[in-house]
Structures are given as structure tokens and as C-alpha cells.
Design a protein around this nucleic acid. Structure first.
Lengths: 127, 127
DNA sequence: GAGCAATATGCCTTGACGAGTATATACCCC
DNA sequence: GGGGTATATACTCGTCAAGGCATATTGCTC
């Protein structure tokens, strides 16, 4: 029962999209934009428990979003650009799409009043 | 705001990031890039069950990623740009970050061969 | 080396989500 | 209106991830 897995125990490589689906992880990445930070820094700034922060950082590091360096007992984490670039690349064809469509939308907004909010349940044609 | 739903209900709205964390949903969005499609179309192209497709479309529609129109018994779904634009906007500061850092990285790779100063627990390879 | 500080990890519980199956609803054509 | 087609929804089940708590690990200081 006590299955001690080897360190490379899971290859369930979540996609970069799944990684940044977690709000706290996005918050961590945003904080790391301005400067590298220790676990304790993030713990305070995010109001999260230390184990939670460490676990999110582990996920982020395994996925290549961050890397760490050691300074005394601290680990200082900083951003790595590659995974988010991957996300950005996925968006490219959609950017083409919406730049094409926003003109039409603008035109549409001229006649229509106002566009309903994106968030929340929207009323479309409901059978 | 302009929403007609109570806040308590709205809170269950997943962020756009969570929506596109699902690979099938990303596939649906990519398919809709080229043209609008019916549920049956998507079902065949994705090799998914019809209820699964419908449920994913429901999630996507609730979040504003797609909208539908009715044609006979079919519903034809098409893209809406706004939610992905939101994602794109989140990426803006990161784009600034990595465009700054990729120069440094390139430069770095020139002199150094390969030097992971961090203790390499795991190789993060980019698929 | 003892004790403390900072961080990582293991175990457990809980909640959310996706898929499958069955069924309901809506629309067409005869 | 009956039958068939296309899609939506209800219910259930299994999985998985996030958080809490306890503990292990690492490195500093004295």
C-alpha cells in the first residue's frame, strides 16, 4: 500500500491552460511580474497558507512557468516566459478573428443600444 | 452592474481561463474559427458524444464564448470574440516581460552552454 | 550540535467537473 | 397528428485537484 513513487512519478502534464485556470496561480504569476519573491512574500500578499503557496509554486515550476533560486533558507521564485508564450500562440488565430469581427461589432453597436455583459448567463435563443 | 442576475448566482461563473482549460472546449473554439457549426458537426469532428458536446457548448455559451442561432432543428454555433479578448488582455504585461527577457536569454545562451543554477528536480520540457 | 526559520511534502477530506445513460423538448415532413 | 431527427437536460458515478493539517527537510545562527 505504501507506494513510494519515484520522483518522476507523474507525467500528467497538464496543459498550460489548466495551470493558469487557477486564480491563485494567476495571481502568483502577476506578482512575479514586478520582481522575484519568496514563498513567505507570496503567502502574505495572497493571504494563503504556506503549504498552499508552496504547492502552487510546485505546479508552476513543473510546468515551467517559474523557476527558483536559493537564498539562505528562502527560495526566490521568478517567471519564465515560455509557457505563457505557448498560450499566446494559441490565441493568434483568434486575434485575427476578432480584429475582423470587431469592425462588424462596432457597426452593430451603432444601431443596437448596448452590448449585454459577457459574464453571467446570457439570453440567447432558448427553445 | 448591468446584470439581471443576483450576485450569488453570478459567483458560480467560472473565469474565462477555467473555461478554456478544457481541451475539448478549446477544440470547439478552434473549429468554430473557420465557420459556424451544428452540434452534430462538432460531435463528428471531435468524436464526442452528443450530450457532451451540448454540455460544453452550454458552458461556452454561458461564458459568452459562443452564440447560437436556430436553423430548423439545428443550432448553429459561432464564436464571440469578447471572452478571449479578456484572456488576451491578461497576457499583455507578460508579453512585455518576455519580449524584454528573450533578448537577455538569447544573449545568455550565447556565452553559457547550459547552466541550470537551480537544483534540477525536474526537466520541464515544452511539448 | 541545538534550536529556530523557511519551505516542501504526505495524507485526508471535500467539492467540482466531465462523461455516460436515459429521457425530455423542439422541429420537420408525411 | 405520428414518426423521425436534432439538441438539451437530469441524474449518477468516477476522478481529480485544492486546501487544511501535520510533519519532514534544509540551512542558518549561536
Amino acid at each position: 500500500m505504501t507506494s513510494i513513487y519515484p520522483d518522476a512519478y507523474i507525467q500528467s502534464v497538464e496543459s498550460s491552460f489548466a495551470i493558469i485556470a487557477e486564480p491563485h496561480r494567476r495571481a502568483i504569476l502577476s506578482l512575479l511580474l514586478s520582481s522575484e519573491r519568496s514563498v513567505g512574500d507570496l503567502e502574505r500578499e495572497l493571504q494563503l497558507s504556506q503549504p498552499s503557496v508552496s504547492k502552487h509554486l510546485r505546479v508552476l515550476r513543473d510546468a515551467g512557468f517559474v523557476e527558483s533560486r536559493i537564498e539562505a533558507q528562502r527560495r526566490l521564485y521568478r517567471l519564465r516566459p515560455e509557457p505563457l508564450m505557448e498560450v499566446d500562440e494559441w490565441l493568434i488565430p483568434f486575434r485575427r478573428f476578432w480584429s475582423k469581427h470587431l469592425d462588424a461589432l462596432e457597426q452593430h453597436l451603432d444601431k443596437m443600444d448596448k452590448v449585454p455583459p459577457v459574464k453571467g448567463r446570457k439570453k440567447h435563443e432558448q427553445p
